[in-house]
Computed example of a mutant assay.
Amino acid sequence: MMRKVVIAAGVLAASAVAAQAATLDTVKSRGTLVCGVSAGFAGFSAPDSQGNYKGLDVDYCRALAAGVLGDASKVRYVSLTAQNRFTALQSGEIDVLYRNSTQTYLRGVTLGLRQGPINFYDGQGFVVKKDLGVKDIKDLKGATVCVAQGTTHEVTLGDYGRANGIDWKPLVFDRVDTMYQTFFGGRCDAMTQDASALAGAVTTAAPNPADYVVLPQTISKEPLGPFTRNGDEVWSDIITWLHYGLIEAEELGVTQANVDEMAKSQTPAIQRLLGASGDLGSRLGLDNKWLVTAIKATGNYGEIYERNVGKASPLKLDRGLNGLWSKGGLMYAVPFK
């Protein structure tokens, strides 16, 4: 009986190891990372005039491809809607989901998916035309509000309205681009979405951005981050430590421009991060210098933020909660040791 138990345990352990390595092995064998993104969120994921995807989420895909495959260009982007994003990951159509996806309790325990570390702290906001004269969310009583189907925004809109006696009239859309066209066409009094996405929509989709204002209040917490499949712990760990590596790089002053020089540093924390000591890459099935390659491709978290949604971008968002913990934000890297 004991022999049978030991054999069974060995089989289970072998199966677990195989499951854990599945996505990493698939990506390496294929030679391309398949990354689920959005096609319509300026600053996060949107194709430019040449069809090249750009944005904060896209840079995470590029950094991941660089770290795992050694080449940031080895990514195939799959444009997903709010309705099909999780199904695409569950079915294996994509390797990882980076698509402005809010992490919630129910998504964490019912989808068979694992929520990665939060890479953007947001909140649900509202945009209106300035000439509507709205200064506060409560001024929207009776308003028609454009909202995307299959999102946390649709649920939160109803919850907040009931809790605060606001009888707004939701107009629900299955496609974000259609929602933008309808709102900027004048059909809705307001539009609700993550505040960062609204800033991007006004910048890129409004006929005259100066005619619109994103209200200062938000009605929810929207912690955004990647999703991977349960049972694939090695792959999920790589996605987790990629994020922490980009944060740690910013904390330690490691940038896209100086990463090669910093790799020669005698500072223990920098040596571990950049693979000069500790064998931290090989423990994930990667080259020990995988984060050097990732940072050379995209820069650290601060560089990714500023380029895509920060002051160097059309959105010009403050760092706020997305600043480093040492500067009043919530971004904090788990130590690499």
Rank of each mutant, 00 (worst) to 15 (best):
G225M: 08
L252S: 11
D232S: 13
L252W: 11
S196L: 01
K221W: 11
P207F: 05
V202I: 02
T240D: 11
P226L: 03
A197C: 07
E250Y: 13
G186I: 08
G186E: 07
G200L: 00
K221Y: 12
A195W: 01
L224Y: 03
P226A: 11
V202D: 05
G245V: 11
A257I: 06
Q217T: 10
T218V: 09
V213E: 09
D189R: 15
Q193A: 14
R229W: 10
E261C: 01
H243M: 09
A195G: 07
I239C: 04
G185H: 07
T228R: 01
E248D: 13
Q256D: 00
G200A: 06
E248W: 02
V259A: 11
G185W: 10
N258R: 10
E250V: 12
A199E: 14
V234I: 13
R187P: 13
T204D: 15
D260H: 07
T203A: 04
I247A: 02
D194T: 06
A190D: 02
A263Q: 07
P209L: 04
K221G: 14
E233Y: 07
S236H: 02
V259H: 08
A249K: 05
I238S: 01
P223N: 05
P207S: 06
G245F: 06
L224T: 10
V254H: 04
G231H: 04
Y244T: 06
V214Y: 02
A210P: 14
G245Q: 10
C188K: 08
